[in-house]
Design a protein around this nucleic acid. Structure first.
Lengths: 339, 339
DNA sequence: CTTGGCACTCAGAGGAGAGGAGTGCCAGCC
DNA sequence: GGCTGGCACTCCTCTCCTCTGAGTGCCAAG
């Protein structure tokens, strides 16, 4: 028994199961794939694959189903990523090029991804922690209310209103604005807090308190942890995934609302490399996603991942196409943002 | 047969059905509610109620189920709105008071509403069309890119980047900013476009094109139609609604993604009055929501609805508590925003 | 108008049985 | 040694059937 054939069998099982959603048996396998051997031989291979944990039987006298490990093997060694159709490529171009700002780009992207993959799409906003400051603006709304606006190099615009007990003259405000920008522009957001406090310290005691409030607001705005955001689309696709997945949909919806879970997952994977990563079933280490896989990729400047996009669906998804789509969309998104 | 009793029967049917999710029969009715008559009498009433379209039978030899019309009657004439528990009131206070800005307030509100009602909660952002301008800010990002920020009296902050072909000197920009604010502050957003164009026309021809770009960006930002936003929470509650509702969940999720549908619904109802309104089943006039009801209320200054919040759930929901909750949360939200 | 009685209907539960897909194993063959 | 056909076995699934019981509509009497 050659190892090659056993892997071919595994691949065939995964492909057939993904297509039919039914356990696949030895006879059906030889019929659909030209493996050149008899069902009995395949049965031996299957027994071995089961022994090694790549496939499993729902019950005796049923065909085999890939396990998480089986999918893992498939993804790592057997799958050949499918490129996008040219119609899809055109759709990406025409849709994303028409976007007017960051919000719009990400919104269109996530919808596109959901539509292409027929699954739930996730887009993470460019992480504040890896961004640098492009500009800080202070806008007086009333004598004692200042709107603090923070603009990053990735195009994100964050704002917050600071209630500054005392009054701040336009003079002081202009001064503060100028100095903040001098110090902070180009610096990573993570350092904004300390930079800003240093600036605040140089102000006369009279204004110290009010300036402090403004600086606090700026610091919270720049606090990356709190401000991680994600956008979803295609949740209805979950319900369309078929009756076999119906049970799982509630916990998945829950996980989607608990954005924390998703964020941690996205951050964990593909943190290292910018390319597409896959988390299969239990690998997500989250109970609610035990029957779900996440295909995600970083995006941003080459070699510098600013955030991630991904697709969430049943473990029995079509990995080759999904991976291809996620990769293509991530690349195009990166290109758009770079311009 | 008195009309009173027939209505009492209808109320009993609705209440029991909502509680048990099973068709309710004449015998069970007299047992659970002290109606003082025999099952046979009730049967006559039920036949009449069915004749009038308030209840229906899933099949012969099953109990009765309220129709949309039955629920409508229940809501309009039979239900007594249930006030919030004091624990819930405390929860509202402690949670919403801790919010830091509009985004945060609405986010907390929608989560709260979902948690209280165990259904899908919707919050619409304060409509731009009914807001007035509090401030306009122009921030140069680069020589030819201007960030246009628009702040409304309802606390919304909208921004957009304008690519202004030519360069704009700080001088011109400051001038433009000052004049725009002079003209637009306090004016309704709907008039911002025309105001801004008038201002632009007064600039020297050299800058006219660049200024025009900025003004365009401002106008789109103020374009209310495009910028209606809603926030959702509790979609997982849909899946928790029980197996009888499982079929309906996919179209509902779809409707939720098609925010347009929801927006139209919200706008249509309670447009007139600020109080709680209810759309039941087919009354939503949207196929996907045929088995769903929407309970919504306006919020904002008294008599002046700036936007709406609501709850979406199976037609067989507990209307008295849901209405009570939505009303209470809407009122509290209004109070928070007024301060 | 209300009521008890009664015949009738029909969904749903439960069980029996047939069918069939799929398996594991073994003995023979290349 | 690996491959193959044959074969007995397992057990899920589907279908059909029956039976039960809740619930009804109607009627005649109170």
């Amino acid at each position: 028994m050659t190892d090659d054939r056993r892997l071919a069998v595994l691949r065939a099982i995964v492909e057939d199961y993904v297509r039919t959603r039914e356990p696949v048996g030895s006879k059906a396998l030889v019929e659909r794939h030209s493996l050149g051997v008899s069902p009995a031989t395949i049965r031996n291979d299957m027994a071995a694959l089961e022994e090694e944990g790549y496939i499993a039987q729902p019950h005796t006298s049923a065909g085999r189903i890939p396990t998480d490990l089986g999918y893992r093997m498939f993804v790592d060694r057997l799958a050949r990523v499918k490129p996008l159709s040219s119609a899809e490529k055109r759709a990406i171009h025409s849709l994303l090029d028409a976007a007017v700002d960051l919000d719009d780009v990400l919104d269109r992207t996530v919808r596109l991804l959901a539509q292409f993959t027929h699954q739930v799409a996730v887009v993470q906003y460019p992480s504040l922690s890896r961004s640098t400051v492009r500009h800080i603006e202070l806008v007086p709304l009333a004598a004692d209310r200042i709107l603090v606006v923070l603009i990053t190099d990735t195009g994100r615009v964050e704002q917050r209103v600071a209630e500054v007990g005392a009054e701040l003259t336009d003079q002081v405000l202009a001064d503060l604005r100028a100095r903040l920008n001098t110090v902070a522009v180009g610096a990573p957001l993570t350092s904004v807090g300390t930079h800003a406090e240093e600036v605040a310290a140089t102000f006369p005691a009279d204004d110290r308190a009010a300036v402090g409030r403004v600086v606090d607001a700026l610091a919270t705005t720049a606090d990356s942890e709190r401000e991680e955001r994600i956008v979803l689309a295609g949740t209805a696709n979950l319900a369309r995934s078929g009756p076999d997945f119906a049970r799982s949909i509630e916990p998945v919806l829950e996980a989607l609302e608990e954005q924390v879970v998703l964020l941690r997952l996205l951050t964990d994977m593909a943190a290292d490399t910018g390319d597409v990563g896959v988390r299969i079933g239990h690998e997500t280490a989250y109970e609610g996603l035990a029957e779900t896989s996440l295909v995600a990729s970083g995006y941003g400047a080459p070699g510098q991942v600013v955030a991630r996009i991904g697709v969430l669906g049943p473990t029995r998804m079509d990995y080759p196409t999904t991976i291809g789509t996620v990769r293509a969309v991530a690349r195009y998104l990166s290109r758009i943002l770079a311009s």
